[in-house]
């Protein structure tokens, strides 16, 4: 029995490691935004490098899992769904990495009074990604629990929308140059995109879950 499941267990572990990488990468994103807003430059730089490592690890694991699923003709009826799921999850951590990179390159000047709003927005987005990772874990092990996690993804995505809307209104109500306002709005949009990506994956997962019932 051990021989029969040895290869399966190794692949299960790789999928879990991939999900861990996505989850930790998104948590690092939140910390990175916090560091940037607090002007803690060394810590921000450390987070930016760390998210790159998590993104690279997730990429490598995804490719390995995909290759093994095809090479060993595993889960023929769900292979396409699982591959789609992993690729879209990979896009989530890619988005987090890109956004943190844009903070580093463009150095937006965020007024002190807007810092809590940016942080709250980043937290809501990261909450959405964490519940998304939980729903993906449930998809593999506990199909009945997927719905409750997806429901939370949708909740935090809406919360992020609400916070982003409020933040944009605040930005454009401030006495700032138009170019700076647009720049600040642009970063609000970048952070918010993370929750939109999470919502997109959750939508796909909801369909995959229906298909997974025997």
């Amino acid at each position: 029995m051990t021989i029969l499941f040895r290869r399966t267990r190794a692949l299960e572990a790789q999928i879990d490691q991939f999900l861990d990488a996505v989850s930790e990468g998104c948590l690092v994103f939140e910390k990175g935004v916090d560091d940037y807003l607090r002007h803690d430059e060394p810590s921000f730089e450390e987070r930016r490098k760390a998210i790159g490592v998590f993104e690279g690890k997730a990429d490598a694991l995804r490719r390995e899992v995909e290759t093994r699923l095809y090479a060993e003709s595993l889960i023929p009826d769900h292979r396409g769904d699982v591959l789609g799921l992993l690729e879209n999850l990979d896009n989530v951590i890619d988005q987090a990495k890109q956004t943190l990179g844009q903070f580093e390159v463009e150095r937006p000047e965020i007024p002190e009074e807007l810092a809590p709003d940016y942080l709250a927005l980043a937290r809501a987005c990261v909450q959405a990604t964490q519940h998304l990772v939980d729903s993906c874990r449930a998809f593999f092990r506990e199909i009945t629990a997927v719905r409750s996690h997806i429901h939370k993804v949708y909740f935090f995505e809406k919360e992020a929308d609400r916070l982003a809307d409020g933040l944009k209104r605040k930005i454009f109500a401030m006495d700032l140059e138009l170019a700076r306002k647009i720049h600040l709005r642009y970063f609000c949009f970048h952070v918010e995109t993370l929750s939109d990506r999470a919502e997109g994956v959750a939508d796909r997962l909801a369909i995959y879950t229906i298909k997974r019932t025997i």
């Binding site: 595993l74 593999f140 092990r141």
Partner: peptide, 25 residues
């Protein structure tokens, strides 16, 4: 058999890949 299998898989939280390996055998 279908009802028993469904209940078993829901209760035991068997991983999708393990279900696949069992099914293959």
């Amino acid at each position: 058999l279908f009802l028993v299998a469904r209940r078993f898989l829901q209760r035991r939280r068997v991983h999708l890949l393990e279900v696949d390996a069992w099914t293959r055998t």
